[in-house]
Simulated assay, not measured.
Amino acid sequence: MSGHLCGEGWRLKIADALAAHGLVPRGGFNFTSDDRPPPGMAETPARAVLLVGQAGAAPWPHFMRWRRERPQVRENPLDIWSREIIAGVAERFGARAVCPNDRPFLPFQQWAMRAEGLKPSPLGILMHPEYGLWHAYRGALLFDHEIPVEAFQKVIHLCDACAGKPCMKACPVETYSGQGFDHPACLSHVRGSTGGSCRTQGCLDRNACPYGAAYRYPAEVQAFHMAAFASPW
């Protein structure tokens, strides 16, 4: 299903290092001569990438424990935590850590589609055949050497089989439509007097999706992400 690393011992060591923080490897691939990869550890173009992310809300207790120890970190705490953890794992395995909010932005979504064979849902979030919309990519490890990977098996894009598209109908201000995501309308609603349920329970459209329900983020996790979305920072 994913572009999993071969070489069982090495793969398991990386997976174990990430699992200690609720994170998981999310597939990888070797760059080709057609790519323009970012620099690796040697400051020359990287040869391979391994994505790091989460399935469901597994990192939440680890992040919350870190947050209690860092009360002074108020802006983008999840990004800071992710960077610290992934950088530590990268150092152990001779890789360079990169994250989705790095500047200049790196093509994380394109990397993810290439590594795991996923496609975007109508909401723009990549639809996973097991996790549904309840997963995320927190960073990646860039290697100066090629890594052994297996080609993923072709995955079923669940959105293709979903006739009703409930994810397009739950939002009271119709944030998602055939015209794309209306960011100003969504932000205004979430910040306004009628957006209370979105602030406390999460995006209504995302929650309307029937897939991956076992991995659905708890309300407190969704409220955290909505607060970050609505923040003026």
Rank of each mutant, 00 (worst) to 15 (best):
M1C: 01
L5C: 06
G7R: 11
L12E: 15
G22M: 03
V24Y: 08
V24F: 08
G27E: 12
D34R: 15
P38M: 07
P38L: 01
P39R: 03
T44D: 03
A46M: 09
V52Y: 03
P61F: 06
R65K: 13
W66F: 11
W66N: 06
R68Q: 15
E69I: 08
Q72V: 06
N76H: 15
P77V: 03
D79A: 11
I86R: 01
G88Q: 08
R96K: 15
R96F: 04
A97Y: 01
V98W: 00
P100R: 03
P104T: 07
F105Y: 14
L106K: 04
A112P: 04
M113F: 00
S121M: 08
S121L: 08
G124S: 09
G124T: 11
I125V: 15
H128Y: 11
G132M: 04
W134V: 00
R138G: 02
L141P: 10
I147C: 01
V149I: 09
V149W: 13
K154H: 05
H157I: 02
L158M: 06
C159F: 10
A163Q: 15
G164W: 04
P166H: 06
M168F: 12
P172T: 04
T175D: 01
Y176R: 13
G180V: 13
F181K: 05
F181L: 12
S193R: 14
T194V: 03
R199P: 10
R199W: 12
C203F: 14
L204E: 13
L204A: 14
R206Y: 04
R206L: 03
Y215D: 05
Y217A: 00
P218E: 06
Q222A: 09
A227N: 13
A230K: 08
W233C: 12
